[in-house]
């Protein structure tokens, strides 16, 4: 357990010190959301109707940008070899690194989402729901993304391949994330969407580290 926390806190510390990844993801998020009204016209009614969808899609794309570094950096400098011979099973190594990715990317993006909601004239009542659903849904983004990151760790043009592999896996998170925020679902629909979203994240938290560890074992050969 001590090793798990050591790895988690090291990854968080690295992300904070190097800063670039978080900053780039947040900047990208801002730019994509700002482009939407430019493409669709400044009609506030239209924007507020599609705000949830735009925010979620932009969030997924922003998170995608930072995924490929989850394992790549540790692979390049040989850290992964040493992590693999440590006392921690590889499944927990991948879990710690996915969790660190969620803390350093998922949470900042989830906090940023309501701020960007202002640009899209998001309904005021939807703000708390937006924060809750992005926080509940983004673990799936990090943990499923880790699978793609482990699979494409050694490939050139890994980023594009990663997007092709991972984005279809994000469909359930996207659908339930948006359906929870969309108005008109009513309180029961909202609760159902939210619970399913959380359940998807739990499945991802179990499946992601297992599959990513299996992929890393192959990659270390």
């Amino acid at each position: 357990m001590k090793s798990f926390w050591a790895l988690l806190s090291r990854d968080v510390r690295l992300a904070v010190r190097e800063g670039g990844a978080i900053g780039t993801a947040l900047g990208f998020f801002l730019v994509v959301v700002s482009l939407m009204p430019l493409g669709l016209g400044p009609d506030l009614n239209l924007l507020s109707r599609i705000a949830a969808g735009v925010l979620w899609i932009a969030l997924l794309l922003a998170a995608l940008l930072s995924l490929n570094r989850i394992f790549e950096a540790d692979h390049e400098d040989g850290t992964l070899d040493v992590l693999a011979t440590g006392p921690l099973p590889l499944e927990l190594v991948t879990a710690a690194k996915s969790l660190a990715h969620w803390i350093t990317t998922g949470i900042p993006l989830a906090i940023m989402a309501p701020v960007l909601g202002i640009l899209l004239n998001l309904d005021l009542a939807a703000y708390p729901i937006l924060v809750a659903t992005t926080l509940a849904g983004t673990p799936a983004v990090s943990f499923l993304g880790a699978i793609g990151a482990a699979l494409t760790m050694k490939t050139r043009r890994g980023g594009l391949l990663l997007a092709l592999i991972v984005l279809p896996l994000y469909v359930p998170t996207l659908i339930f994330g948006i359906s929870a925020v969309s108005a008109g679902a009513g309180p029961t629909g909202l609760a159902a969407s939210f619970l399913i979203l959380a359940a998807i994240s739990l499945v991802a938290i179990v499946l992601g580290p297992l599959a990513a560890a299996a992929a890393l074992k192959v990659q270390l050969q």
Partner: peptide, 26 residues
């Protein structure tokens, strides 16, 4: 390596597929 990594992805896909189907229906 390609064989094993693709196999892992296929198994991940088959696990997620029912969830995708369910969410698309919803």
């Amino acid at each position: 390596a390609a064989a094993k990594l693709t196999a892992i992805l296929a198994l991940v896909g088959v696990t997620i597929l029912p969830i995708i189907k369910f969410s698309v229906d919803w």
